[in-house]
Design a protein around this nucleic acid. Sequence first.
DNA 1: ATCCTGACCACCT
DNA 2: CAGGTGGCCAGGA
Length: 118
Amino acid sequence: MSIPRNPTEQQRNFFQDVHEVVRLVPVGRVTTYGTIAHYLGARHGARMVGWAMMAAHTANEYVPAHRVINRNGLLTGKQHFATPTAMQEALEAEGIRVIDDQVQDFKRLLWDPATELE
DNA sequence: ATCCTGACCACCT
DNA sequence: CAGGTGGCCAGGA
């Protein structure tokens, strides 16, 4: 899978929407692909959120991609970071405990824009 | 055009 | 209750 060289208007908007939501995630909290998809109206599958995240490192503004994990609290996207440990280290630097790719106390740390943002 | 695969998830056996 | 399946949309072979 790769990022489109010349994204359509629709794709750029989708990327920006996803990135914007991710930037709203508070330090020390996490959110999930599915949550974002649902918040954006579920018009795109959760897979598309993950797809948009691949464009995170090419975005103009910083996107804390390490705060986006899957619904089980697993760091499924860590392979896409500069190093395999970068994601976990970024989370731990914010006070989040990660053991064996699993965010501890994940349920309490979960940040859902639909309910937290209003 | 067809089939496969993907930073996923909800639903159905 | 665990594993399988389909759906989501897009891109590459």
